[in-house]
């Protein structure tokens, strides 16, 4: 588990340090589009996470956990 964590953190840091350009506020129009959000459809994601939680053995990876249910 700890080895996984270290490797993941290293890969994450490398991913983040790749070609980043500073984008001034007035050029952030496209990034601010609703379809560019990390969670563009909250109800849809909530439903998907609930279904995959019930039917698969993996959970999480979506920020904070929202509680359980008897479905798993």
């Amino acid at each position: 588990m700890h080895r996984n964590l270290r490797i993941s953190l290293l890969l994450s840091a490398l991913a983040v340090m790749t070609a980043c350009q500073f984008v001034p506020a007035y050029q952030r129009g496209d990034l601010a589009r609703p379809e560019m959000a990390f969670d563009a459809d909250p109800l849809g994601s909530k439903l998907n996470q609930h279904i995959y939680f019930s039917k698969e053995a993996s959970t999480g990876g979506n920020g904070v956990a929202a509680g359980g249910c008897g479905c798993n």
Binding site: L5, S8, L9, S12, A15, V16, T18, A19, C20, Q21, V23, Q27, R28, D30, L31, M36, F38, G61, G63
Partner: peptide, 13 residues
């Protein structure tokens, strides 16, 4: 992290 005016990336554990 904002990568450029069209691209953004997120990574977490």
């Amino acid at each position: 992290q904002i990568l450029n005016q069209f691209s953004i990336i997120q990574t977490g554990v």
